[in-house]
Simulated assay, not measured.
Amino acid sequence: MATVLSWSGGKDASFALREMHREGVEVVELLTTVSAQTGRSSMHGVGRELYERQADALGLPIRFVEIPADASNDEYEAALAEATDEYERRGIDRIAFADLYVEDIRAYRESRLEASDIEGYWPVWGRDTESLAREFADAFEATVVAVEDSALDESFAGRPFDESFLADLPEGVDPCGENGEFHTFVHDGPVFDRPVPVRTGETATVEPRHGDMVVHQCEVLPAE
């Protein structure tokens, strides 16, 4: 079945890609959203150039859905629906998501696909997040690019996602950040043909376009 992977550039999506490789799933494209104004993802703060380098190192094409600044939820959904419609015309069978256990998010994604013939697919759904986090840290290299202020202070932004990071997480923070506590950018691992060299820049505090959540984003930049 021809499958598109909803792509954040982070650890769960990378782990899901590895699982699909192991299962022989035909992944034909990565799909991600960026700001039409900045070319960056809203939560991760990762720029389009790094996503392109990442996709190239993975040997996969990537599709960018551009979201206007301060877009309403309806505008956001319309932009993704346009991509879904095109996938349906191309004969794509399903879109894979790397969600682990948040039922509301899964139900929302399923509702957005109901009007199409495209199925949702969850290759890592139900996995234990502690064991997944440690298995990921053993096999991949990633940088923590954003942390949610109510869960983690800004010192966690810019750190490698490794055993030390996991050991320092406060009680109640999911080891995979499944509740939005933190986000990562993956730059090497078993699904990559070659590493994506990166360096960290400054950390900035931002407020996402919706809600009152404060996020500390550490800029990641190409290292060469």
Rank of each mutant, 00 (worst) to 15 (best):
T3F: 10
V4M: 12
S6H: 00
W7L: 13
K11G: 02
A13L: 05
A13S: 15
S14L: 01
A16R: 02
A16E: 01
L17V: 07
L17I: 06
L17K: 07
H21E: 15
V25H: 13
V25S: 11
V28I: 15
E29N: 15
L31E: 09
L31S: 10
T32V: 10
V34S: 10
V34E: 04
S35G: 00
A36V: 00
Q37L: 07
G39C: 02
G39Q: 08
G39S: 06
S42N: 06
M43E: 05
H44Q: 14
G47S: 13
E49P: 03
L50V: 01
Y51I: 00
E52H: 05
D56T: 13
G59A: 11
G59L: 10
L60Q: 05
I62H: 09
I62R: 00
I62A: 13
R63Q: 14
F64I: 04
F64E: 03
E66N: 10
E66A: 13
P68F: 08
A69W: 11
A71K: 07
S72H: 01
E77T: 07
E77I: 13
A78L: 08
A79F: 07
L80Q: 14
A81G: 14
E82A: 14
E82S: 13
E82G: 01
A83P: 03
T84K: 10
E86A: 14
Y87R: 05
Y87C: 14
R89I: 05
R89H: 08
G91I: 04
G91F: 08
I92G: 09
A96G: 02
F97M: 05
F97Q: 09
E103T: 07
R106M: 10
A107E: 14
A107P: 01
Y108E: 01
Y108W: 04
E110P: 04
L113Y: 08
E114G: 13
S116A: 14
S116G: 12
W122E: 07
P123H: 09
D128Y: 02
D128F: 09
S131K: 12
F136E: 03
A139K: 05
E141R: 13
T143R: 05
V144R: 00
V147H: 11
S155A: 11
P160H: 03
F161G: 03
S164H: 03
S164W: 06
L169C: 05
L169N: 06
P170V: 00
E171K: 03
C176M: 12
N179D: 13
E181P: 02
V186P: 03
V186W: 03
V186F: 02
P190M: 06
F192P: 07
F192M: 01
F192D: 08
P195Q: 04
V196R: 01
P197C: 04
V198P: 13
T203I: 09
A204N: 11
E207N: 12
H210K: 05
G211A: 04
V215T: 12
Q217V: 15
A223L: 06
